[in-house]
């Protein structure tokens, strides 16, 4: 294993402000400790900034102020190379797009494994072929993204987020475009990975509970540019 991976044990926003690219605030002076070691359902109204928040958690979008603390270290001032060991333990699935168009689906899945030498090339091919077989898309393996059905593209984006065996998984609208059979297969994969101790925390951003229903999950609500865990949201509603 050549790529150095630092497992993510704690995540904390400290007085963070986060803005959309379009110029709308997502978070304002928010301090929040993410509950680790389980499944988190990130909920909000449409357009409140769930995807931007997931981007920030993946280190793709920097906050305008405040600190994003991973394992008690502020990662905001880090360069791409300094953040890389954390990034390698994060799996991220896009809500749309995100496949490398001039590579086949198999090469898309192989890319992170081979680029960072996370395993030997032989192990990488075996791992990718197992995943392709399990989700019954082997016949599309040699095709480029533009030549396969939309549901296959979406599935490969989701699968690429797990191919490196990340300990921290971020899923942006994972159920959109996927059939119930594929979702249940994916849920089984997550269960197996958690039992094997490979996967620790999963954050799912979705407008419905289709993906998180099978799991014992915590709700984190994005409301009024602040974050609340489920019980706090209920308290807030009760106090209104």
């Amino acid at each position: 294993m050549e790529g150095q991976v630092i497992p993510i044990e704690s995540l904390r926003f400290e007085d963070i402000s986060l803005w959309h690219d379009g110029g709308h605030p997502v978070l304002k002076n928010t301090t929040f400790d993410f509950p680790m070691g389980g499944v988190i359902w990130l909920k909000s109204d449409e357009g409140a900034g769930k995807s931007t928040l997931l981007n920030a958690l993946a280190g793709l979008h920097n906050p305008t102020s405040g600190s994003y603390v991973i394992n008690d270290i502020d990662v905001v001032p880090m360069s791409f190379e300094e953040f890389l060991p954390y990034r390698l333990s994060i799996g991220y699935s896009f809500d749309y797009g995100g496949l490398i168009n001039n590579r086949t689906l198999r090469d898309n899945l192989l890319l992170p494994l081979l680029f960072h030498h996370l395993c030997t090339p032989e192990q990488a091919y075996v791992r990718v072929d197992e995943i392709l077989q399990r989700f019954e898309i082997t016949k599309y393996a040699g095709e480029r993204p533009a030549h396969v059905p939309g549901r296959v593209r979406k599935l490969v984006v989701v699968l690429r987020s797990i191919v490196t065996y990340p300990s921290f998984l971020l899923l942006d609208d994972p159920s959109v475009g996927l059939s119930d059979d594929i979702l249940s297969n994916f849920v089984s994969w997550i269960d197996e990975a958690r039992e094997a101790g490979r996967l620790s925390t999963i954050v799912v951003s979705a407008f419905d509970d289709k993906m998180v229903r099978p799991f014992d999950h915590t709700i984190v609500a994005l409301e009024g540019h602040q974050l609340f865990v489920g019980s706090q949201v209920e308290k807030r509603v009760a106090n209104l």
């Binding site: 790529g3 981007n55 993946a58 280190g59 793709l60 791409f80 190379e81 890389l84 990034r87 390698l88 994060i90 991220y92 896009f94 749309y96 797009g97 995100g98 496949l99 490398i100 168009n101 890319l111 992170p112 680029f115 960072h116 690429r160």
Partner: peptide
């Protein structure tokens, strides 16, 4: 590549 979010995908995979 930007429109198709391939640049973001590379960053997510730790590829600069």
């Amino acid at each position: 590549m930007r429109v198709n979010r391939e640049i973001e995908a590379l960053e997510v995979m730790g590829i600069n």
